[in-house]
Amino acid sequence: MKREMIPIAGIEIEVHEAGSGEPILFLHSGQGFMPDHAYVGLLAEKRQMIAPSHPGFGRSGLPAWLGTVDDIAHIHLELMDQLGIAKADVIGASIGGWIAAEMATKAPARFKKLVLVSPVGVKVGPTDKLDIPDIFAMPLDRVSKLLFHNPDNAKVDVAKMSDEELTIMVRNRETMALLCWEPWMHNPKLTHRLHRITAPTLFLRGASDGLVSADYLAAYAKLIPNAKIETVPDAGHALPVEQPQAFASRVLSFLSA
């Protein structure tokens, strides 16, 4: 996988690229983009994969003025301009799904098809209950149980990681807090903008996802005119990591239909 730094609005954005064919813009989750994950290769066998690291994630910069998902949506739209991508299929996972949804409300015509994998970003439930559990108010092992069907998949061996890899891991988490702290995991405006999306939209959810509930996703999907939901068994919130084959095949069949 190739990696280069592309300046967008004065920010150095890390962009991964692999494969050939029609481009897919892939917007990563809070974990950051990991080129070694199996689903990446499976998608890149069929299509060109373009995967930027969001500002503050991976090796991408984070200027003091940037602090919202809305800011990042603008950055990635500008990245599409810079790469000469007039229109593309876009996949977004978790916070990447939120970013993708924001982008698609701003520039609906630039999206062919949209795949939102357990996205966050809206508030659909009651005032006195968090739609998304507060992952910063619980022990990390409990977070792992919410994110993974098999919590063993959450394990990282710190001893084998370089300082740069650890720095990226810590920084990704900081940027998640920056973006999601308040309002918690959502933009109150997005609910009132999603009707603008014209691209056929597939919502994917791991059946064991403890972060994004089935009810949440059903309410989210109702806000987008042409959307459907598919559930993948034996997967949690980190669906692409836990079920790479099922993830890639569902995505590719939706995009090619």
């Binding site: 910063f136 108010a137 619980m138 022990p139 990390l140 720095t167 810590v170 920084r171 988490r173 900081e174 998640m176 807090a177 920056l178």
Partner: peptide, 12 residues
């Protein structure tokens, strides 16, 4: 720890 070390409080 999740209250003693919230992300972003201590330097990276």
């Amino acid at each position: 720890p999740h209250y003693a070390n919230p992300p972003g409080y201590f330097p990276t």
